[in-house]
Amino acid sequence: MTVYIIRRVLQLIPVLLGVSILVFSLMHLTPGNPAQLMAGESAPPDTIEQIEESLGLNDPLPVQYWDYISGVVQGDLGTSMRYNTPVADEVWPKFVVTLELSIYSTILSIFMGLLAGIISAVRQYSISDITIMIVALFGLSMPNFWLGLMLIQWFAVNLGWFPPTGWEGPGSIVLPVISLGTAGAAIIARMTRSSMLDVISQDYIRTARAKGVKRRVIIYKHALKNALIPVVTVAGLQFGALLAGAVLTESVFAINGMGRLLVDSIIQRDFPVVQACILIIAVVFVLVNLVVDISYKFLNKRIDLND
C-alpha cells in the first residue's frame, strides 16, 4: 500500500510539470502585450520596453520558464499587474473561500447522491424511486446559476430565510452550496443507483442472504462497498467540475472567491493572476484524482499494484 502511494505521488511530478508548462505558455499564446497593458494605451515605447525588461519578457522562453517555475516552487506566483501586489496574497484568501464552497458542495453531493441512489436502487420501480430519478433529472439539467437565482428569489427574497449574497456566517453558505452541489448530487444518485442494482444481482449477495444476514446489513455492508467503486470515480471528477462551476455560482451570490477573481483577471488581462488561478485549479484537480485512486485501492484490493 505504502509503495503504491509513493509510486502514485512520484507519477504526479511529470503531470504537474506538464501543467506548469501549459499554464506558462498561456501568457505567450494569448494576443496582446502585457507590458503595453500595464503601461496603458498611450504609454511611450520607452516605458513599455522598460517594463518588458523588468518583467524579463525579453529573455529566451526557457529562461523565463525557469524563473517562473523556481518562483512558483518558493510560493512566488508573480506580481499582479492590476494591483501591483504579490499574486499569492491576492489569490490565497479567495482560494480558501472557493475551496470551502467546493468542499461543502461535494459533501452535499455525495451525501444526498448516495442516499437517494441507495433508496432508489433498493426500491426499484417504486414511487420513491421514480420521484428521485425525476428530481435527479431536473437537478442534472438545471444550470447552476439559474438554480442559484431561483433559490435567491424563493428563500432569500420571498421567505427571507437566508441572506441573498455573501460568504459570511453559516446562513450565507446554504444557498450557494445547494446551488453548486445539486448537479453533482444528481449525477452521484444516478450512478449509485445503477451501480447498486448491478451489485444487488450478484451471486455474493445471494450468498449473504443464504447466511441469514439482515437486509439492511446486506445493503450497507455487502452491496454498498462494492457499489462505491465506480461512484468514487464520478465523485472525484465531480469535484473538479465544481471548481469550474464555482465561477458562476460566485458571480450569482456575489461571493469573493477565486472564480470571480479569475473572471475579473481575464477581463483585465492580469496574466499572473490568471496563471496562478489556473495552476491552483489544475493542482487541486490532480490531487483529488490521487485521492480517488488511493481510495479505489482501499475499496478494491484486486487492483494491481503495478497499474
Binding site: Q202, D203, Y204, R206, T207, A208, N226, K301
Partner: peptide
C-alpha cells in the same frame, strides 16, 4: 459459481 459467490471486497 465459486468464483462469484464470495464477496470480493471482504
Amino acid at each position: 459459481e465459486p468464483m462469484t459467490s464470495l464477496n470480493p471486497v471482504y
